[in-house]
Design a binder for these strands. Sequence first.
DNA 1: TCCGTTTTGATATTTTTTGGCAAATGTACA
DNA 2: TGTACATTTGCCAAAAAATATCAAAACGGA
Lengths: 98, 98
Amino acid sequence: MNSIGEIIRNLRTDKQLPLRTVAAYLDIDQAILSRIEHGERKATREHIVKLAQYFNVPEKDLLITWLADKVVYEVADESVAFEVLKVAEEKVKYNTIK
Amino acid sequence: MNSIGEIIRNLRTDKQLPLRTVAAYLDIDQAILSRIEHGERKATREHIVKLAQYFNVPEKDLLITWLADKVVYEVADESVAFEVLKVAEEKVKYNTIK
DNA sequence: TCCGTTTTGATATTTTTTGGCAAATGTACA
DNA sequence: TGTACATTTGCCAAAAAATATCAAAACGGA
């Protein structure tokens, strides 16, 4: 169960690219990309989209992981985390029907 | 499937209390409470805790609804919303084991 | 040790969140 | 309609959080 940061790092290191190169492509400081890979910063949606293109992986997959991480971040440290997600699911279902 | 705002409003109107009174208890402007009830503002965790005490309802229930709304807000408008929540669930499970 | 890469600290900047005030609007009722 | 009270809304200010930048420190292989 990899975090979005771990996935990005794997994609990058598999191609043996330095932070500098990928960061340049994203037009951000390499320090930021380093922090994103470590989960200390959140990537933006644009970053995710660009990375999917850059590494030629399905954008959808990357977006799902990215969003899931954001959701987990919201409920982390909550003892009721699981219940919250269940309720959220019902709400999403309900909203899509309407 | 009521939103946290609707629940708060129901609790308040059931007791026939004006915004002013409840807002004073929360130590916020009544305008803010009005917006919270309409979902235009997010309540803080403290607000939720105080409201549970004030209306004598289980804090846990209110917190779950509050958090679920926040989660739904994160993934709303996402076609992959449901998948995101499923992935988030697995991540939460995985984290609690660790 | 040297060199390229990565991480981290300090700080600046921007964005988001939160709140307050006052005016406008709504509502019930004499 | 007029009045009293409740609610909503627009606009702005303050506080908090997120984000970016730079430079220096730390790391790791040759």
